Each structure stands twice: as C-alpha cells, then as structure tokens.
Computed example of a mutant assay.
Amino acid sequence: MSGIAILCSGQGNQRSGMFDLVASEPAAAPVFAAAGRVLGNRDPRDLVRQGGDIIHRNDVAQVLCCAAALAVWVVVGPSVPRPLIVAGYSAGEVPAWAVAGVIDASSAFDLVVRRAAVMDGATREPSGLAAIVGLRRDVVDGLCRAHGLDVAIVNGLLHFIVGGRAADLQRALTDATAHGATRATMLPVHVASHTPALKGASERFGELLTEIDAEAALPRDVRLISGIDGRPVRSVADGLVKLAAQVSTTIDWAACMDACRASRPSRVLELGPGDALARMMTEFEPGIPARSAADFRSVAGLRRWMEAAP
C-alpha cells in the first residue's frame, strides 16, 4: 500500500488563526455551519478569533478540532490521491472516521459533542493531562504509581502523556524534572482522557455509538487505524468498540505512526490545529514528507504539495 496518510489532531493547540486556511472557502461552509449547531449557534470561526479560555474547554475544544480537520478535508479531500491511511489522535479519532468515509460530518459533530459531555460528566474534580519527555517508560510508570496517575498516551520511547487529578499532576511534574525529564508540563486539557478515571464515560459513549450502523462496509481504498493499538479497523463493529474504549484506555500513538510507516505513504498530512503530529511523524520516520495543513498559507499551496507526491 502507498498513497497518503491523514492524521487528525487532538485538542490542545486551538488558536485564533486555526481556521484561516479555509475560513472563506465555499466548500467548507457546511462544515462550519454543522459545528455552529452543536456550539449553541456560535460560529467556530468567530469563537476562535475571540479566543480566551473557552476554546480550551473540553466540550468546545473537541468540536473545534473536529471542525478544523473536516473543513480542510472537504476542500482538499476530493483531490487527494488514494489509497488513504487515516488515524486520529485522541479527540481526533472521531473526525478521522469521517475523513475515512465511515460517518458523515454531521454525525461526527454529534458524536464529539456527546463524547465531551460524557467525559465532563465523569470528571468530578479538577483533572487533566501533562506531557513528560525524556524519561523511559519504567520511570514514568513509577511516577504514575507514586502520584496516583496513569499513562494516557504513548508518543514514543521517551515521550508520554499522563493523566489524573490536577494536584497530583503538578507534584508528578516536579518529580519528573528532578528525575531528568527534558520537558514536564501541563497541557490545556481539563479531563483525564484515556485513563481508567473515565471508564464510566467509555461505557456511556459506547451506548451512544450503537446508533452507528455497525454493518456498514469500510471503504476499500481506506485503511483506518485504531488509536489504542495501531491496528487497522477490520469492521465497523469492532472499530466502534475500540472507539468507545479509547476514552479510558491508553492510546498507543507510536504504534499508529508505525502502522502509517508500514503502509509506505508518499506523504503524511496532519489535519487540525497545530503541527504536533506532523513533527512527531518526521522524527519517527524522516524519510516520509510530513506537513500540517496549518503550515500552508493557501489551499493552492497545500494542493501543490499533495500533487507532488510520487
């Protein structure tokens, strides 16, 4: 398999200009309208321009990230070479299902807003996520045991996201720095995503996912990757089980990147706010050109880069 790999960002990098590339594109208008409907009739473009803490609030952030991915995709997707390899990072996994053609944009927005609601409902005290870089997994596991935390995302051999109560995270970060971490910082995410603290949210989200047609066929020219283990989704029914589980299960993003590399894509394109996934992919496999849509100043420039794929 070759083709293009599409990676959909999770939350944390929302900013005022995150929609600038396609804000005025007619094809993206229905996506912004669909996002606005689940944001209380607030236009997501106006919301991010106003900025403030609201764009990092879980129920808003998940919608904004979905909109960022799908607004670009509806504009450039029809001209992107097939086959596709598609993976979503954390909250980006729902829009990844829409990019893959398993669900439509309206369903994706409905799911992300309901996903956020069950996660918020299961969060009973200040919680969040933090990044720890530069320490081995066994050291990070020890810090988690000492401070009542869990590994939420594995980004690489020395790059982890941990989750739990905010006060415990702060103490763990101080400890991580003392152990020699090159980076130890809180992330602008206010739920302990992908940890057992959200097991109840996983169960409730799984109930909501029963509304999706589990018998639907996966597109033949798309390989959709599951976030929790990096394995291809072989059936919609099995994929939905994993999609619900990832709310409270560690995400193995390193395995997702390995799955993308194994598919030998000619290009990797990140959709969503920021460029963290493109940068991680470049570090993981320097031989595959990886860019974020956020790198481009025009749709024409993005299209030229995609068309240059061998």
Rank of each mutant, 00 (worst) to 15 (best):
I4L: 12
I4C: 02
A5I: 09
I6L: 11
I6G: 02
I6M: 07
L7V: 14
C8H: 00
S9I: 12
G10P: 04
G12T: 07
G12D: 02
G12I: 00
Q14K: 06
Q14D: 03
Q14V: 06
R15G: 15
S16G: 12
S16H: 14
G17V: 12
G17E: 14
M18W: 10
M18C: 08
M18T: 10
F19R: 04
F19A: 07
F19T: 11
F19D: 04
F19C: 09
D20T: 13
V22F: 08
A23H: 08
A23Q: 11
S24F: 10
S24T: 15
E25L: 10
E25M: 08
E25V: 03
P26N: 04
P26D: 12
A27S: 13
A28E: 02
A28L: 01
A28F: 10
A29N: 04
P30K: 06
V31E: 08
F32K: 08
A33G: 11
A34I: 04
A35S: 04
A35E: 06
G36H: 11
V38I: 13
L39C: 01
L39F: 04
N41L: 06
N41S: 15
R42E: 15
D43A: 12
P44R: 07
P44W: 06
R45A: 10
R45W: 13
D46T: 14
Q50A: 15
Q50P: 03
G51N: 03
G51V: 05
G51H: 09
G51Q: 09
G51I: 03
G52P: 12
D53I: 01
I54Y: 07
I54S: 13
I55E: 09
I55C: 07
I55H: 02
I55G: 01
I55W: 03
H56G: 00
H56Q: 14
H56I: 01
R57G: 14
N58E: 06
N58Q: 08
D59Y: 09
D59I: 07
V60N: 07
V60W: 02
V60R: 04
